[in-house]
Every structure is written in structure tokens, then in C-alpha cells.
């Protein structure tokens, strides 16, 4: 599956200033791994040592927070759009 990943401004310095990047995978987690293999500098920003998505990195799939679905295991399909957004601090 090919999905489009929207890169937030502070991370664009790691994606050659690309606002969107195309990634492959059947789940959100796989798409993120594919993104990181294209831009290795993103890796420690987005994932912890064991390769899991960091807890304060929120991902939206077509504008819906993946935590309302299956989290990183949420399935993606061709043409979907992922956005990477910092968790809101506070509370």
C-alpha cells in the first residue's frame, strides 16, 4: 500500500524540506518504518530504542487520531494520508 505522510514543520529539516513523503506498508507502524528507512534521521525522533512509535508522537489517519482505532496496528490502504502531530501537553 502506498500512503502519503504529512511531515510537520519542525521535522522537515530531516526530510530534505519535503512536506509530504510517500511510504509503503499495510499498517501505520509499517508505514512509519518505511518513512524512516527513507529518512534515517527521523528514526530516533519518532521511535524509541525498540522501534515502537514514541508515546508523545500522535498520528492521525485521514484526520482521525489512530488511538481511536487500533493504535500503531491500525490498517492503512492505498491513498490514505497520515499526519504526524505532537501530543498536547497539559491536563
Amino acid at each position: 500500500m502506498a500512503v502519503t505522510v504529512r511531515i510537520p514543520t519542525p521535522l522537515r529539516k530531516f526530510t530534505d524540506d519535503n512536506e509530504t513523503v510517500s511510504a509503503e506498508g499495510g499498517t501505520v507502524q509499517e508505514a512509519i518504518v518505511s518513512l524512516q528507512s527513507q529518512y534515517p534521521a527521523l528514526k530516533e525522533r519518532l521511535c524509541d530504542d525498540s522501534g515502537n512509535l514514541r508515546k508523545f508522537v500522535n498520528v492521525f489517519l485521514n484526520d482521525e487520531d489512530i488511538r481511536f482505532q487500533d493504535g500503531p496496528a491500525t490498517a492503512v490502504k492505498d491513498g490514505d494520508e497520515l499526519s504526524i502531530i505532537p501530543a498536547i501537553a497539559g491536563g
Partner: peptide, 21 residues
């Protein structure tokens, strides 16, 4: 609290590396 990076004691609250608090 997530990656241990240090910051000065200013009005800061998220890590610019990993977005941890």
C-alpha cells in the same frame, strides 16, 4: 522524561527531539 535530553530552566515544556514532556 522520555529521552533524557537536558534543557535550561526556562519556559519550556516539550522536548524538541522526541516531543516528550
Amino acid at each position: 522524561r522520555e529521552c533524557g535530553k537536558k534543557f535550561p530552566a526556562e519556559v519550556l515544556y516539550v522536548c524538541d527531539d522526541c516531543w516528550g514532556p
